[in-house]
Amino acid sequence: MISKDQVAHVAKLARLSFSDAELEQFTHQLDQIIAMENELAEVPTDGVTPTTQVSDERNVFRADVPVTDGPTRDQLLQNVPESKDGLIKVPTIIDKGEADA
């Protein structure tokens, strides 16, 4: 059984927040899903190499030169929620509790 505390910990790692009711529901659903995942333990996999990709291509390199045909700074800033003077604007990083710190 996965506990509500465990789910809250995973939520923190994933940068997600849930209300208490949501946390309750997610714990229940994740518990069911993880019970399904536990079926994997039945499969003998000693000595089996894990597969994490199915591409034939390996170690693709390119010359260490800047890409110059990409989007411009102005284009890239088009989708930024808040920007100022060509920079991305974010709230204060450490909230010291001061107004508009």
Partner: peptide
């Protein structure tokens, strides 16, 4: 227990 195990099962399916 989860990621690596599933990746090994993927090998068997493949």
């Amino acid at each position: 227990a989860y990621f690596n195990k599933a990746a090994a099962v993927r090998t068997l399916i493949k």
